[in-house]
Design a binder for these strands. Sequence first.
DNA 1: TTGTACGCGTTATCAT
DNA 2: ATGATAACGCGTACAA
Lengths: 339, 339
Amino acid sequence: MTYTIKDVAKRANVSIATVSRILNNQPGYSEKTKAKVLEVIQELGYQPNAVARGLINRRTHTIGILFPSLSSLFTGKLLSGVEKIAHEKESSVIACHTQSQGLKTMKYLQMLNEKRIDGLIFTSELLKEEYYEYIKKIDIPAVLLATESFAFPLPYVKVNDHHAAYSAVQYLIKKGHTKIGMISGLPTDPIAGKPRIQGYLQALEDYQLEVNKDYIARGDGFKFGEGKAAFKQIMTQFPDITAIFCASDELAVGAISQAYEMGIRIPDDVSIIGYDNLQIAEMSVPPLTTVAQPLEKMGETATHLLFKMLEGSNDVENKIISHQIIERESVKALETRDL
Amino acid sequence: MTYTIKDVAKRANVSIATVSRILNNQPGYSEKTKAKVLEVIQELGYQPNAVARGLINRRTHTIGILFPSLSSLFTGKLLSGVEKIAHEKESSVIACHTQSQGLKTMKYLQMLNEKRIDGLIFTSELLKEEYYEYIKKIDIPAVLLATESFAFPLPYVKVNDHHAAYSAVQYLIKKGHTKIGMISGLPTDPIAGKPRIQGYLQALEDYQLEVNKDYIARGDGFKFGEGKAAFKQIMTQFPDITAIFCASDELAVGAISQAYEMGIRIPDDVSIIGYDNLQIAEMSVPPLTTVAQPLEKMGETATHLLFKMLEGSNDVENKIISHQIIERESVKALETRDL
DNA sequence: TTGTACGCGTTATCAT
DNA sequence: ATGATAACGCGTACAA
């Protein structure tokens, strides 16, 4: 049996209005009736119906979050941060899995709209016009997480990919490397592809190192298998490369794995630096040096931002989260250079 | 602007009853009015309010899922499978993060109850009496995923841990190993601790191998760091051990990592077999041989089971999912034995 | 301090 | 084939 506010009212010999007031601690009752009502609530184990509340308050205390993949190593941390803050704000989070498909994404957006979520977090991929138009049409607060949009004005929280990539390559250079390759994502990916490639290029230029476009092996994504393939390709073509910047930790671990198969020693023969600092970074053999995105913190920040919007704040600003080099053992110093 | 059924009705010159009928394709209108109404719906971009629907239908098309951790490698796959089926069933899933804390868990349970979720999935940890009593009290369909309860009658889906552990050790034995250690979780953990230890013990016994309780190094959990520590301990104490069964892939990868630090070669000096088959298993160097739990499939199965319960089916049965040895490169054959 | 009654957006029952 | 209208469980103006 699940009780309603009416049951409580009847049993406590008061009106539902009084019960409601007590529940929402608004003024208008004596301490005595309050005590009585609370007692009855306790007794019955009454729990307010959030659905009814949502209907009348126009607030469901639920937010939605869209991920291209739910099972990637990346997603967990993000979700964890988001859920943490949402929970602090008395809200819950509906996790959706778009598989990067436009159709699925639109369906999820619709479903979330029908459920009247309070706000939306969109993660890790490009915001298509179709999505933006819909979000705008249903007029719901939304923030971008681990992605950004150049075309549409939605606030975002992410690291500066260009800068982070630059830092990684700079680190390699300061360790004395001069022949530096890269395993990248798709250059057509404006979020995680191109900016990292450009950061890499920029660093080489700034330090007057040879830039050879063929030093960049492109994966179709950021996955392990692609890292393996790319490493093989790059190392057979340019065996004199001494260090590689990988655009993701999965790519980097793939490279390490491939190196092992090829009998190439990391970091003795070639140094590897990754990007992300996922759990696998510390678990790899050797442990992976990488530039960290603080994913959990990013999730928290995005959620704080979203709630600020919900509370009607007007100073919603994009947040660039600072990245950081995590030194482990996959990079070897050559003759060190002072720069 | 977000429209209601009233707006549609007015604009189409029909009653809200008719609109509702069309929306739920129930009989009682002409093709002509149907067309007209659909047209208006299109025009306005009307989307039914699921909150109002939930209130009257007593069905929210939302299920809740409780995880001890949201960011573990384990969780993602499980969630992915659950979400997939839920989505097929036109439902969404609220992900909760209990941190294995009783208080938090109870709070989540309450919140989910207030939101009037249709069903609940409880994962990866022991179902306390308090939880069960509450679930029973609010009278909501629930299934256990990657865990089971000996004390309380909730259906579960998981692999047979005892059997899976047995298989792993048997595999080692068939590869010719006779001095086999184990890195385990807590023996007091009735779900993932004890059964795996007993499976290990049983296999040794069945094949008349020496069982030495000290060959078991206990972690406080199943994490990477614990794997490292346990490996160090076990190998310094018993350097003649040739193979180790690890109760999780994280533990196994920790062992491999530690081996690397100690200059012990895997699998040449010692063989390692893991448990889970997470993504890290294929990524490790060398790639990890392990006994696979099909996590995604388990998530799917649990969700199917839950929906069966929702639909009032009475043949809800526990599902034991079959495990499977995934051969990779972390186990070396000694003189092979025919057994 | 307290209660009545309307409305939130639907579905469903009963008329017509 | 269609329309009024009463729920669903709650919050809140208004009245008392």
